[in-house]
Design a protein around this nucleic acid. Structure first.
Lengths: 122, 122
DNA sequence: ACCCTGTTTCGACGTCTGTCAAGCTAGAGA
DNA sequence: TCTCTAGCTTGACAGACGTCGAAACAGGGT
């Protein structure tokens, strides 16, 4: 479980970024951030992420029934979200609980911010 | 050029969405939005997007030299961004100019917003 | 006509997706 | 404590999809 092996999401690299509508991203930043967007680029993972993000924490047993794919498939997708550092998992007794990593999630959102008066507003 | 064939980005479906940290996304919303995140899920496309978003508009001739891949490859990635509806292209004389579609871009960012006091803050 | 810019086509290669089967962990019952 | 069962994850595989470049094509200037 990722409780004891939290993926090192070079938060520095993300946290120091301005919104992409403000300053172009360099290659290293892009290499760190792209996998996160990629992880959200699958409908199932996006829904998983939204289900996890909209509550403090949620049990896998509540996630799986919401989809038409098998348990292992959900587990695979959750693994992608975990390895990308977007979510954190913890086993408590029989069940595994997932929750978002707010710092990572927030930074990701910050990249897409559109500052009030940006040229992109044209 | 996509000037005369702007991809219909069911903006309704996106615009009506709360941030995913507020309310889980249904399958249809996810199907519309996921391709956009997917488009940003490649380091080259992410950098292209950031270069385009950080200025009012930009010429392909300024984009291509910034990367170590061939012209056709850049063109491929730009096509993905175009077809996803994230950017718009227009030929003016010899060169093609790209610019973001602010509504789409803004809505995408809104999905990742973290409302001030959300449970995700735990 | 010729050249330049950018896109498209096509093919090779790698990566991702989803299922089945097996493995592992935790709690329940004897 | 030992075994049984449930819950999830991991491994291995086949099929689908994405990535990239060489070459061919179209649009525009001169």
């Amino acid at each position: 479980m990722s409780k004891q092996s939290l993926p090192v999401v070079d938060l520095q690299a993300v946290a120091c970024c301005s919104p992409i509508a403000v300053r172009p991203m360099d290659a290293e930043q892009a290499a760190v951030v792209a996998p996160m967007f990629k992880a959200l680029g699958d409908p199932i993972r996006l829904r998983l992420m939204s289900m996890i993000a909209s509550v403090p924490e949620i049990c896998v047993c509540d996630l799986t029934p919401a989809f038409d794919v098998s348990g292992p498939t959900i587990s695979h997708h959750l693994k992608v979200l975990r390895e990308t550092g977007l979510v954190d998992a913890e086993r408590r007794g029989t069940w595994v609980w997932y929750r978002v990593r707010p710092e990572v999630f927030r930074q990701l959102g910050a990249l897409l911010d559109v500052p009030a008066a940006t040229s992109a507003d044209a």
